[in-house]
Write a protein that binds this DNA or RNA. Sequence first.
DNA 1: ATCACTCTTCGAGTGCACTCGAAGTCAACA
DNA 2: TGTTGACTTCGAGTGCACTCGAAGAGTGAT
Lengths: 135, 135
Amino acid sequence: MSLATVDTALTIAEAAEVTGVTTHTLRYYERDGLMLAVDRAPSGHRRYTERDLGWIRLVTRLRATGMPIREVRAYADLVRAGDGNEAERLALLRAHRDRVRAQLAEVATHLEAIEFKIAAYETQALACLGEDTAV
Amino acid sequence: MSLATVDTALTIAEAAEVTGVTTHTLRYYERDGLMLAVDRAPSGHRRYTERDLGWIRLVTRLRATGMPIREVRAYADLVRAGDGNEAERLALLRAHRDRVRAQLAEVATHLEAIEFKIAAYETQALACLGEDTAV
DNA sequence: ATCACTCTTCGAGTGCACTCGAAGTCAACA
DNA sequence: TGTTGACTTCGAGTGCACTCGAAGAGTGAT
Protein backbone atom coordinates (compact mmCIF):
# COMPACT_ATOMS: atom_id res chain seq x y z
CA MET A 1 0.00 0.00 0.00
CA SER A 2 1.67 3.16 -1.20
CA LEU A 3 0.60 5.90 1.15
CA ALA A 4 1.58 8.84 -1.02
CA THR A 5 1.86 8.00 -4.66
CA VAL A 6 2.60 10.62 -7.22
CA ASP A 7 -0.10 13.30 -7.41
CA THR A 8 -1.58 12.23 -4.06
CA ALA A 9 -4.11 10.11 -5.92
CA LEU A 10 -5.56 7.32 -3.82
CA THR A 11 -6.07 3.64 -4.47
CA ILE A 12 -9.57 2.28 -4.30
CA ALA A 13 -8.96 0.92 -0.81
CA GLU A 14 -7.79 4.30 0.38
CA ALA A 15 -10.67 6.08 -1.27
CA ALA A 16 -13.02 3.62 0.37
CA GLU A 17 -11.54 4.37 3.74
CA VAL A 18 -11.68 8.15 3.52
CA THR A 19 -15.18 8.25 2.04
CA GLY A 20 -16.71 5.45 4.05
CA VAL A 21 -17.92 3.72 0.90
CA THR A 22 -16.85 0.13 0.31
CA THR A 23 -14.70 -0.80 -2.66
CA HIS A 24 -17.52 -2.99 -3.87
CA THR A 25 -19.88 -0.03 -3.88
CA LEU A 26 -17.29 2.27 -5.43
CA ARG A 27 -16.95 -0.08 -8.38
CA TYR A 28 -20.70 -0.52 -8.47
CA TYR A 29 -21.22 3.25 -8.67
CA GLU A 30 -18.71 3.47 -11.48
CA ARG A 31 -20.29 0.62 -13.40
CA ASP A 32 -23.69 2.21 -12.92
CA GLY A 33 -22.61 5.56 -14.32
CA LEU A 34 -22.64 7.51 -11.09
CA MET A 35 -19.02 8.52 -11.29
CA LEU A 36 -17.26 11.00 -13.53
CA ALA A 37 -14.22 9.58 -15.32
CA VAL A 38 -11.97 7.99 -12.72
CA ASP A 39 -8.28 8.04 -13.61
CA ARG A 40 -6.27 4.89 -14.00
CA ALA A 41 -2.63 4.19 -13.26
CA PRO A 42 -0.64 2.71 -16.15
CA SER A 43 -1.30 -0.62 -14.47
CA GLY A 44 -5.02 -0.13 -14.88
CA HIS A 45 -5.63 0.44 -11.18
CA ARG A 46 -8.02 3.20 -10.26
CA ARG A 47 -6.56 6.40 -8.92
CA TYR A 48 -8.93 8.65 -6.98
CA THR A 49 -8.08 12.33 -7.06
CA GLU A 50 -9.29 14.98 -4.65
CA ARG A 51 -11.91 15.82 -7.24
CA ASP A 52 -13.14 12.23 -7.26
CA LEU A 53 -13.36 12.23 -3.50
CA GLY A 54 -15.39 15.44 -3.61
CA TRP A 55 -17.69 13.89 -6.15
CA ILE A 56 -18.12 10.78 -4.03
CA ARG A 57 -19.01 12.98 -1.09
CA LEU A 58 -21.61 14.73 -3.20
CA VAL A 59 -23.06 11.43 -4.33
CA THR A 60 -23.17 10.35 -0.70
CA ARG A 61 -25.06 13.49 0.23
CA LEU A 62 -27.56 13.04 -2.54
CA ARG A 63 -28.06 9.40 -1.62
CA ALA A 64 -28.33 10.20 2.08
CA THR A 65 -31.08 12.67 1.29
CA GLY A 66 -33.01 10.08 -0.63
CA MET A 67 -32.11 10.69 -4.23
CA PRO A 68 -32.48 7.45 -6.16
CA ILE A 69 -29.48 5.98 -7.95
CA ARG A 70 -31.01 6.61 -11.36
CA GLU A 71 -31.34 10.30 -10.64
CA VAL A 72 -27.78 10.60 -9.39
CA ARG A 73 -26.82 8.95 -12.66
CA ALA A 74 -28.88 11.47 -14.60
CA TYR A 75 -27.03 14.27 -12.82
CA ALA A 76 -23.67 12.62 -13.44
CA ASP A 77 -24.60 12.27 -17.09
CA LEU A 78 -25.23 15.99 -17.30
CA VAL A 79 -21.94 16.84 -15.66
CA ARG A 80 -20.08 14.43 -17.89
CA ALA A 81 -21.75 16.00 -20.92
CA GLY A 82 -19.87 19.19 -20.11
CA ASP A 83 -20.88 22.84 -20.28
CA GLY A 84 -24.20 24.02 -21.60
CA ASN A 85 -26.66 22.11 -19.49
CA GLU A 86 -26.29 23.98 -16.24
CA ALA A 87 -29.97 24.88 -16.30
CA GLU A 88 -30.88 21.21 -16.31
CA ARG A 89 -28.52 20.42 -13.48
CA LEU A 90 -29.94 23.28 -11.52
CA ALA A 91 -33.50 22.12 -12.15
CA LEU A 92 -32.60 18.63 -11.01
CA LEU A 93 -30.96 19.87 -7.84
CA ARG A 94 -33.79 22.27 -7.07
CA ALA A 95 -36.39 19.57 -7.50
CA HIS A 96 -34.42 17.39 -5.15
CA ARG A 97 -34.01 20.20 -2.66
CA ASP A 98 -37.74 20.78 -2.64
CA ARG A 99 -38.44 17.13 -2.04
CA VAL A 100 -35.92 16.99 0.77
CA ARG A 101 -37.38 20.06 2.40
CA ALA A 102 -40.87 18.60 2.21
CA GLN A 103 -39.75 15.28 3.59
CA LEU A 104 -37.83 17.02 6.36
CA ALA A 105 -40.93 18.94 7.34
CA GLU A 106 -43.05 15.83 7.30
CA VAL A 107 -40.64 13.86 9.44
CA ALA A 108 -40.41 16.79 11.82
CA THR A 109 -44.17 16.75 12.21
CA HIS A 110 -44.22 13.04 12.87
CA LEU A 111 -41.38 13.47 15.33
CA GLU A 112 -43.36 16.04 17.27
CA ALA A 113 -46.28 13.68 17.53
CA ILE A 114 -44.00 10.93 18.76
CA GLU A 115 -42.46 13.26 21.30
CA PHE A 116 -45.92 14.15 22.46
CA LYS A 117 -46.66 10.49 22.96
CA ILE A 118 -43.44 10.01 24.90
CA ALA A 119 -44.41 12.94 27.11
CA ALA A 120 -47.73 11.25 27.76
CA TYR A 121 -45.96 8.12 28.91
CA GLU A 122 -43.56 10.13 31.02
CA THR A 123 -46.34 11.89 32.88
CA GLN A 124 -48.08 8.60 33.58
CA ALA A 125 -51.02 9.92 31.65
CA LEU A 126 -51.25 6.59 29.90
CA ALA A 127 -54.19 5.28 31.85
CA CYS A 128 -56.05 8.40 30.86
CA LEU A 129 -55.31 7.80 27.22
CA GLY A 130 -57.58 4.81 27.23
CA GLU A 131 -55.04 2.71 25.44
CA ASP A 132 -52.14 3.43 23.26
CA THR A 133 -53.77 4.96 20.29
CA ALA A 134 -53.63 8.63 21.06
CA VAL A 135 -51.56 10.69 18.63
CA MET B 1 -71.01 -0.01 1.20
CA SER B 2 -72.69 0.98 4.40
CA LEU B 3 -71.61 4.48 5.22
CA ALA B 4 -72.56 4.53 8.87
CA THR B 5 -72.92 1.11 10.39
CA VAL B 6 -73.66 0.61 14.03
CA ASP B 7 -70.90 1.97 16.28
CA THR B 8 -69.40 3.95 13.42
CA ALA B 9 -66.94 1.15 12.81
CA LEU B 10 -65.52 1.14 9.30
CA THR B 11 -65.05 -1.59 6.74
CA ILE B 12 -61.57 -2.32 5.51
CA ALA B 13 -62.18 -0.32 2.34
CA GLU B 14 -63.30 2.68 4.36
CA ALA B 15 -60.40 2.37 6.75
CA ALA B 16 -58.08 2.18 3.78
CA GLU B 17 -59.53 5.35 2.39
CA VAL B 18 -59.33 7.43 5.54
CA THR B 19 -55.85 6.26 6.49
CA GLY B 20 -54.35 6.17 3.03
CA VAL B 21 -53.17 2.60 3.52
CA THR B 22 -54.27 -0.02 1.01
CA THR B 23 -56.47 -2.93 2.07
CA HIS B 24 -53.68 -5.25 1.03
CA THR B 25 -51.29 -3.51 3.38
CA LEU B 26 -53.86 -3.31 6.15
CA ARG B 27 -54.25 -7.10 6.06
CA TYR B 28 -50.50 -7.49 5.75
CA TYR B 29 -49.95 -5.39 8.86
CA GLU B 30 -52.47 -7.47 10.76
CA ARG B 31 -50.93 -10.74 9.62
CA ASP B 32 -47.51 -9.45 10.60
CA GLY B 33 -48.55 -8.54 14.13
CA LEU B 34 -48.47 -4.78 13.74
CA MET B 35 -52.10 -4.30 14.69
CA LEU B 36 -53.85 -4.57 18.01
CA ALA B 37 -56.91 -6.80 17.97
CA VAL B 38 -59.18 -5.66 15.14
CA ASP B 39 -62.85 -6.30 15.75
CA ARG B 40 -64.92 -8.47 13.47
CA ALA B 41 -68.55 -8.26 12.47
CA PRO B 42 -70.60 -11.43 13.05
CA SER B 43 -69.95 -12.12 9.37
CA GLY B 44 -66.22 -12.21 9.97
CA HIS B 45 -65.61 -8.90 8.23
CA ARG B 46 -63.16 -6.53 9.86
CA ARG B 47 -64.56 -3.52 11.65
CA TYR B 48 -62.16 -0.65 12.25
CA THR B 49 -62.97 1.51 15.24
CA GLU B 50 -61.70 5.00 15.92
CA ARG B 51 -59.08 3.40 18.12
CA ASP B 52 -57.91 1.21 15.28
CA LEU B 53 -57.65 4.22 13.02
CA GLY B 54 -55.60 6.02 15.64
CA TRP B 55 -53.33 3.05 15.90
CA ILE B 56 -52.92 2.88 12.13
CA ARG B 57 -52.00 6.54 12.14
CA LEU B 58 -49.40 5.86 14.79
CA VAL B 59 -47.98 2.97 12.81
CA THR B 60 -47.86 5.22 9.78
CA ARG B 61 -45.94 7.84 11.73
CA LEU B 62 -43.46 5.32 13.01
CA ARG B 63 -42.98 3.87 9.54
CA ALA B 64 -42.68 7.31 7.97
CA THR B 65 -39.92 8.13 10.40
CA GLY B 66 -38.03 5.02 9.47
CA MET B 67 -38.94 2.51 12.13
CA PRO B 68 -38.61 -0.99 10.68
CA ILE B 69 -41.65 -3.26 10.60
CA ARG B 70 -40.15 -5.64 13.15
CA GLU B 71 -39.77 -2.84 15.67
CA VAL B 72 -43.31 -1.63 15.17
CA ARG B 73 -44.32 -5.22 15.81
CA ALA B 74 -42.24 -5.27 18.99
CA TYR B 75 -44.05 -2.17 20.17
CA ALA B 76 -47.43 -3.61 19.25
CA ASP B 77 -46.51 -6.77 21.15
CA LEU B 78 -45.85 -4.70 24.26
CA VAL B 79 -49.12 -2.85 23.96
CA ARG B 80 -51.01 -6.06 23.38
CA ALA B 81 -49.35 -7.56 26.45
CA GLY B 82 -51.19 -4.96 28.52
CA ASP B 83 -50.15 -2.96 31.54
CA GLY B 84 -46.81 -3.33 33.27
CA ASN B 85 -44.37 -2.82 30.44
CA GLU B 86 -44.70 0.92 30.01
CA ALA B 87 -41.00 1.36 30.75
CA GLU B 88 -40.14 -0.85 27.81
CA ARG B 89 -42.49 0.98 25.49
CA LEU B 90 -41.02 4.25 26.60
CA ALA B 91 -37.49 3.01 26.03
CA LEU B 92 -38.40 1.85 22.55
CA LEU B 93 -40.02 5.15 21.66
CA ARG B 94 -37.15 7.17 23.10
CA ALA B 95 -34.59 5.18 21.18
CA HIS B 96 -36.56 5.78 18.04
CA ARG B 97 -36.94 9.46 18.80
CA ASP B 98 -33.19 9.79 19.23
CA ARG B 99 -32.53 8.07 15.94
CA VAL B 100 -35.04 10.26 14.16
CA ARG B 101 -33.54 13.41 15.64
CA ALA B 102 -30.07 12.34 14.57
CA GLN B 103 -31.21 11.47 11.09
CA LEU B 104 -33.09 14.75 10.83
CA ALA B 105 -29.97 16.67 11.78
CA GLU B 106 -27.89 14.75 9.29
CA VAL B 107 -30.31 15.31 6.45
CA ALA B 108 -30.50 18.98 7.36
CA THR B 109 -26.74 19.23 7.09
CA HIS B 110 -26.72 17.54 3.72
CA LEU B 111 -29.53 19.80 2.60
CA GLU B 112 -27.52 22.87 3.48
CA ALA B 113 -24.63 21.62 1.43
CA ILE B 114 -26.93 20.98 -1.50
CA GLU B 115 -28.44 24.43 -1.14
CA PHE B 116 -24.95 25.87 -1.16
CA LYS B 117 -24.26 24.07 -4.38
CA ILE B 118 -27.47 25.37 -5.90
CA ALA B 119 -26.47 28.87 -4.91
CA ALA B 120 -23.16 28.37 -6.66
CA TYR B 121 -24.96 27.40 -9.85
CA GLU B 122 -27.33 30.32 -9.50
CA THR B 123 -24.51 32.86 -9.25
CA GLN B 124 -22.82 31.40 -12.30
CA ALA B 125 -19.86 30.65 -10.11
CA LEU B 126 -19.66 27.24 -11.71
CA ALA B 127 -16.72 27.96 -13.91
CA CYS B 128 -14.84 29.00 -10.81
CA LEU B 129 -15.61 25.73 -9.14
CA GLY B 130 -13.34 23.92 -11.55
CA GLU B 131 -15.92 21.27 -12.15
CA ASP B 132 -18.84 20.01 -10.26
CA THR B 133 -17.20 18.53 -7.26
CA ALA B 134 -17.30 21.36 -4.78
CA VAL B 135 -19.37 20.65 -1.68
C1' DA C 1 -81.14 -12.40 -7.51
C1' DT C 2 -77.41 -9.57 -8.40
C1' DC C 3 -73.38 -7.29 -7.71
C1' DA C 4 -69.92 -5.30 -4.98
C1' DC C 5 -67.43 -6.27 -1.13
C1' DT C 6 -65.17 -9.29 2.05
C1' DC C 7 -63.00 -13.31 3.63
C1' DT C 8 -58.87 -16.85 3.57
C1' DT C 9 -54.52 -18.68 1.90
C1' DC C 10 -51.08 -18.77 -1.06
C1' DG C 11 -47.21 -17.80 -3.45
C1' DA C 12 -44.91 -15.02 -6.57
C1' DG C 13 -43.29 -10.50 -8.11
C1' DT C 14 -41.41 -5.78 -7.60
C1' DG C 15 -38.08 -2.23 -6.65
C1' DC C 16 -34.28 -0.62 -4.64
C1' DA C 17 -29.52 -0.62 -3.39
C1' DC C 18 -26.39 -2.82 -2.33
C1' DT C 19 -23.47 -6.95 -0.89
C1' DC C 20 -20.86 -10.95 -1.43
C1' DG C 21 -18.12 -14.26 -3.37
C1' DA C 22 -15.51 -16.61 -6.71
C1' DA C 23 -12.58 -17.29 -10.71
C1' DG C 24 -8.71 -16.10 -13.03
C1' DT C 25 -5.22 -12.57 -14.04
C1' DC C 26 -1.99 -8.95 -13.20
C1' DA C 27 0.72 -5.41 -10.32
C1' DA C 28 3.50 -3.60 -6.59
C1' DC C 29 6.22 -3.85 -2.77
C1' DA C 30 9.43 -6.21 0.62
C1' DT D 1 9.74 -14.81 -4.71
C1' DG D 2 6.01 -14.24 -2.13
C1' DT D 3 2.19 -11.93 -0.34
C1' DT D 4 -1.10 -8.48 -0.70
C1' DG D 5 -4.01 -5.99 -3.28
C1' DA D 6 -5.73 -4.63 -7.66
C1' DC D 7 -8.23 -5.88 -11.87
C1' DT D 8 -12.40 -8.06 -14.69
C1' DT D 9 -16.92 -10.36 -15.22
C1' DC D 10 -20.36 -12.76 -13.50
C1' DG D 11 -24.20 -14.09 -11.19
C1' DA D 12 -26.45 -14.87 -7.05
C1' DG D 13 -28.01 -13.38 -2.51
C1' DT D 14 -29.84 -10.12 0.96
C1' DG D 15 -33.11 -7.19 3.21
C1' DC D 16 -36.89 -4.60 3.31
C1' DA D 17 -41.65 -3.55 2.58
C1' DC D 18 -44.81 -4.00 0.23
C1' DT D 19 -47.75 -5.28 -3.92
C1' DC D 20 -50.42 -8.08 -6.81
C1' DG D 21 -53.29 -11.54 -8.27
C1' DA D 22 -56.03 -15.48 -8.15
C1' DA D 23 -58.93 -19.11 -6.27
C1' DG D 24 -62.95 -20.26 -4.01
C1' DA D 25 -66.40 -19.07 -0.71
C1' DG D 26 -69.34 -16.19 1.98
C1' DT D 27 -71.91 -11.44 2.98
C1' DG D 28 -75.03 -7.76 2.53
C1' DA D 29 -77.36 -3.89 0.57
C1' DT D 30 -80.68 -2.94 -3.47
